[in-house]
């Protein structure tokens, strides 16, 4: 089961997990799996940064993208706490990518995505037309997709990716509704819940240029998202856009 074109994957990680064993998770192993599945580029976030330590985590990402600049893109992960650290991390790692790629994990960082703690980040993202990948979860008080529609409207030049599209069946519907209300919102299909017919619904309601392939490797198995796209009852044109072209466009790279 191979995709028809090389994939640009908007959602990956570097690092391991506290609550379950990681297999074949180092960058060299990731590259082998990327080659197997025809994933040309993987945009990565540091798992250490998502859980515990942004400065150290972003430094891990720096090493990976320095070593393999053609295969990896790096998100700068920022936390709203301690105050001021996000701005310094954004400045320190601004060479990662232009436009900047920023990752927010309001669930693990226990801070509402629409709260005052993240305002400096949203200002920066708006100013730099950054791509901001936000972890989202169905109705979560810190990261529900519903919280992001007003943010997207207030900061219209930021391009916001709803990581996991809210995960659950209801979360997906919240994410679709959020994207319908703001043209700068994009949906990432990463997730462990492979809802039947949801790909078709997203394409029906949003058009395919707002949907992005994400794997969450080495958390989740990339073949999950691959199988969902390749077997969805949508046009080949839509599949190619989702697998590659939409994220290439967001990154402002050439196809």
């Amino acid at each position: 089961m191979k995709p028809p074109i090389p994939i640009y994957d908007c959602h990956g990680h570097i690092g391991i997990h506290p609550d379950f064993p990681a297999y074949k998770a180092d960058p060299e192993e990731l590259l082998r799996v990327m080659d197997l599945l025809n994933i040309e580029v993987l945009a990565v976030t540091s798992t250490l940064a998502c859980y515990n330590d942004c400065p150290r985590g972003n430094a891990e990402v720096a090493k990976v993208i320095e070593r393999q600049p053609h295969r990896f893109r790096g998100y700068i992960t920022v936390n709203s706490s301690p105050a001021g650290e996000a701005a310094s991390e954004l400045a320190r790692w601004s060479w990662f990518h232009k436009p900047p790629l920023i990752k927010l994990h309001p669930d693990l960082h226990k801070s509402p995505v629409n709260g005052p703690g993240y305002r400096p980040v949203w200002d920066y993202a708006n100013r730099t037309e950054a791509v901001v990948l936000v972890h989202t979860w169905d109705s979560d008080p810190n990261c529900s997709p519903i919280l992001l529609a007003p943010v997207a409207r207030e900061f219209p030049r930021a391009r916001i990716i709803l990581g996991h599209s809210g995960v659950t069946w209801r979360g997906y519907h919240q994410a679709i509704e959020c994207a319908e209300g703001a043209a700068n919102v994009f949906l990432d299909i990463t997730g462990s819940q492979s809802h039947r017919t949801i790909m078709e619904k997203m394409v029906d309601r949003l058009a395919y240029d707002r949907i992005l392939f994400g794997s969450d490797m080495p958390y989740l198995e990339a073949a999950v998202s691959l199988g969902r796209v390749l077997t969805a009852q949508i046009s080949n044109e839509a599949k190619e856009a989702i697998l590659r072209l939409n994220f290439v466009k967001l990154l402002q790279e050439s196809a």
């Binding site: 089961m1 069946w169 039947r196 790909m199 199988g227 390749l230 077997t231």
Partner: peptide, 19 residues
């Protein structure tokens, strides 16, 4: 597969691409 809630495409792809 977990039909009818999940698409079998996901679990089949995992099996198809396992080394």
């Amino acid at each position: 597969s977990r039909l009818p809630f999940y698409t079998p495409g996901a679990a089949l792809a995992v099996l198809a691409t396992a080394r």
